[in-house]
Each structure stands twice: as C-alpha cells, then as structure tokens.
Nucleic acid binder design. Structure first.
Lengths: 153, 153
DNA sequence: CCAATTTGTTAGTAGAGCATACAATTTCGC
DNA sequence: GCGAAATTGTATGCTCTACTAACAAATTGG
C-alpha cells in the first residue's frame, strides 16, 4: 500500500529523535529522568525520595534550620517544602519546634531515627553516585558539576 | 539575646548546602528544575509543557509514528504517553488513526493547527535554548550534551 | 490453531510544583 | 511606640508527570 521509500524516510532509525537531539534542555530532561529512575530503585527499600533525602541531609547538617531556609537552598517554594517536611515528620524522622529567636520560624531537628535513616541514606547515595559517576573521569565530573551549577545558580 | 557566635555556627552562609554540593545527582536535579521553570515561563502563552512539545515535535518529524515508539524515544511508559497524547488530541493538535500495517498501533499525525503550533513552539524553544546556552561556549555545549547523553543512553 | 507478546486503554496512586488565601510574628517607617 | 508592610508557616486546590495493575484487541510464533 505504502511506498517503502517513503516509509524509510519516515521510520527513522531506532531511538532517533531527530532535531530534538540538538536541544540541550531535552538532554538535561532525559538525563534527569534516568537519574531519577535509578535513584528511586536505589531507595525503594528505604522508601525515600530525592527531595526527602535532600531535606533530611540539610536538616542533619544544619540543626534548627527553618523551613524557608531549606526551601531556599533546595529551590522549593514554601508549599512544596511543607508537604515534604510533613511527610518526614509523620514518619518520625524529623521534628519541628517553634524557633526561640523568631516566632515565625519552625526550627527543625532530626530525631534519633532520622539520624539513623540519614546515615543509611548516605550509604545508598554513595552507591547511586557510583553508578552515575562510573561513566566519567574525575576531571569530567568536575567539569559537569561546574557546568550544571552555572545553570542552576 | 542570642549569642552571635552560636548563630554563625548554625546559620551557614547563604545557600550553603554543605556536603550535598558534592553529589552529582543533586546538581542534575537543580539544573533540571531551573530549566523546567524557565521553560514553563517561556511557554506560558502557548500553554505547552516540555513533554507536550517533545511529542508534538516527534510526531511532526515522524508522521504515522505509534505511541509506543514516541514513549520509547522520550523514555516514557505507555500510560504516561497516553495522558500526553490525549491532551494534545483534545486540543486538536494531533489525531490518531488505526495503523493499516499493524492493527494494534495508532498512527499519529499533526493537524494543521498542530503544525502551526509546533512552528511557534520551535521559535519558543530557540529563545529558551539561547537562555540556556548563553552561559557556555560552543565547545562546552558539545561536551555537556555528550556527557548528558552518556547518562541517559 | 493456540499461546505468548505487543499495543493501547482505563483506573488508581503518588510526588512535586504552583497559586491563593489566611494567621501569627517580626520588622520598618513615622 | 504604633501601625503598616514583610516574613514565615499553614491549608486548600489544581496541574503535570510517572508508575502499577488490569483488561481488550491485534499480531506473532511454535
């Protein structure tokens, strides 16, 4: 029915994405997706998401940190930060306390279980990062991170 | 009231994310977020998302392409692809037809409006990409894309 | 021809992001 | 010091993306 030559011109090679391949943003999105999927697998047992781990990590590094501070550093708005902190609090990994220095702020701390889970999460991150870094040299990793930072800073 | 030295020890420098800064995956996520936000602003008028534009673009480049093919190339599962194609069809930018060569497949085509919107979207992409690329040299862009491809391939 | 596979579809769940509105608190201008 | 403005947290609701599970229709393979 159809002209084979015409089909060939349309049916491009496997995984061919055509001009889309030249779009930097597209590659960032695909790479993010791949990292996200591997992260999710790695953290399936712990049941933590990227955001949750980031918040846990940040609160562990900076006890008494306020939600607005966490959101600002992880580039999340207040509402988004809330839902993540709520989930961590429900799971008993983190507690909130009214800040003594500023009544508007909530000072956040890790619970004992939170500290333990963070330690385990850091081990998972190590494994996840190894998977990610395995395809690059040290110099390339440095360059990659520096370029990514130019985008998000 | 408060001890300044104590404050300094907790209140780290602006935007300090500590050891999180050494995690490659974290930078990919932040960069993706920044790109996502700029994309959304750029496409606010057109009302299209990254995924929608990608699918539109792919169908434009490969008429008669099946949903499964689109999903595979954009790394989306069938269910996710469905919701995006549904939305594009509802907006009249794309139509589905049962494939004549394989009755299981839906052959997808852009409508006239779809072609027009895709053209406009490509102009928006150009502007969005300029914003993104402005911080890099040509050689850096090439290197960045190549490294990102190593992650998602 | 029958079984397994592929593709599309539907329904349900969940995370993340965003906007809006409101309350409590702090800060700033006067 | 007082009142207005800004900050922070909270609650609600919406959207987009992604995934699972189940099912139907069509194709493919033994």
């Amino acid at each position: 029915m159809r002209d084979p030559a015409l089909i060939e011109s349309n049916d491009a090679d496997e995984e061919d994405i055509g001009a889309l391949d030249g779009i930097v943003g597209f590659h960032i999105r695909l790479a993010h997706g791949a990292v996200y999927r591997h992260f999710t697998e790695t953290f399936a047992d712990l049941g933590l998401t990227q955001k949750q781990v980031s918040v846990l990590w940040l609160v562990g590094d900076h006890p008494e940190i306020a939600q607005i501070e966490v959101g600002s550093r992880l580039r999340m708005d207040r509402a988004t930060t809330m839902t993540i902190v709520n989930r961590l609090e429900e799971r008993g990994l983190l507690r909130r306390e009214r800040s003594s220095s500023d009544g508007r702020k909530q000072a956040m701390f890790l619970t004992e279980e939170g500290e333990a889970v963070l330690e385990e999460a850091k081990r998972c991150i190590e494994s996840h990062e190894s998977w990610l870094k395995s395809r690059f040299s040290e110099a390339e990793i440095e360059k990659l991170v520096e370029m990514l930072a130019r985008i998000h800073d």
